[in-house]
Design a protein around this nucleic acid. Structure first.
Lengths: 192, 192
DNA sequence: CTCGATTGTCTAGCGATGCTAGGATCGAGG
DNA sequence: CCTCGATCCTAGCATCGCTAGACAATCGAG
């Protein structure tokens, strides 16, 4: 019994190590640098070990995404709870979202750009993903405006944030006007 | 003289063939399927021929992106010119944008998701890219509102459209509410 | 008209990728 | 102490982007 439990514990630890190492490597050198060989070397195991934990690279990306989703949800809720008033809350939420995307580009990519084999907007969507959306909904639902479905409004606001995050990081729009764009977004889109 | 001209013409034709074939293949089976080998086979030349036209795969993606940018600019202007009134013009523009993204996913990816080695938002940005942004600016600048820089407003509106396009296609948000989200975006963001 | 030089293209191969088969090793249970 | 199953590693496959070097066709000079 105890032996088997210890093995399971060690196995779970190793799995966490894989995910953490993949994330670290991705943040340091980009997802392209996260090859199964490099990852295996860093965790000091051979390549096939990775495949005893995950189906393939996609699932590893997915695991990083789930971890990131939980963090993002927490960050969003923390930011929202520290602000007073609906307007300030929305502004704080939006700011926290973009900051998370900027500070954790690899995690953000795993979540929304790369294929982590995750199901979205469905029943079998993993809990952390649903919860991250819920964190947005909690604050944004309040400012959807009359006759506007809160979830639909949240999707729209989220899309705008996502567009700002990705286009900025890809160099499609310059970071200079970031503050102004954000103010304008909150001012116009939210029904205050 | 004439011989050299003929050769140059043939060479230019072949280059167009490469770009068109890459685009076709990408639209049919996704960019992952666009390998240099498959592309070479389709144009009935060997692999190294591709490298006599382009530095590498990135540049081929970039060429598809430029072609797409020109088409997109034309589509946006056509849609805007057919609508009467500022509100209808903005709505038509937004609709045309999302439709282009939906009907040409591979081209859209080449433009805004993949690395085509193109410079954006800079002086040496290729003309078609500047022009596509200009097409957005022409219509959106009219509804930026007082005291709001037209280009900055355009960037924000564009970000929202980009977010909607990418999140929808990635399955992050469902296509059902598309119309409503678009209406809401135009209604709220534009200063009408 | 011939023959070297240039231009164009192809075959073959390099290093790296994700992933897997099959053998070696190790430790728990009898 | 021995057996046998779980665990892990070595080695290898197919494919990727990209390139070197051989070969053939074409051109220009004598």
């Amino acid at each position: 019994m105890s032996v088997q439990e210890r093995k399971e514990r060690e196995r779970a630890n190793r799995e966490r190590l894989i995910v953490a190492t993949a994330r670290e490597l991705a943040e340091q050198q980009g997802w392209d640098a996260v090859t199964t060989r490099r990852l295996a070397e860093r965790i000091e195991y051979s390549q096939p070990v990775l495949y005893s934990h995950f189906r393939g690279k996609r699932e590893i990306i997915g695991a990083v995404a789930l971890e990131g989703a939980a963090e993002m949800a927490a960050a969003l809720r923390a930011a929202a709870s520290e602000a007073d008033g609906r307007r300030a809350r929305v502004a704080a939420l939006a700011h926290a979202y973009l900051e998370f995307a900027e500070r954790n580009p690899a995690v953000y990519d795993a979540l929304f750009q790369l294929d982590g084999g995750l199901a979205f907007a469905r029943e079998d969507t993993p809990e952390p993903l649903k919860d991250a959306f819920a964190a947005l909904l909690e604050t944004l639902g309040e400012v959807a405006g009359e006759g506007v479905h809160p979830a639909l409004f949240t999707e729209l606001f989220w899309s705008a944030l996502h567009g700002l995050a990705t286009l900025t990081r890809a160099g499609r729009i310059l970071p200079e006007g970031a503050g102004e764009r954000l103010d304008l977004l909150v001012e116009r889109l939210a029904a205050l």
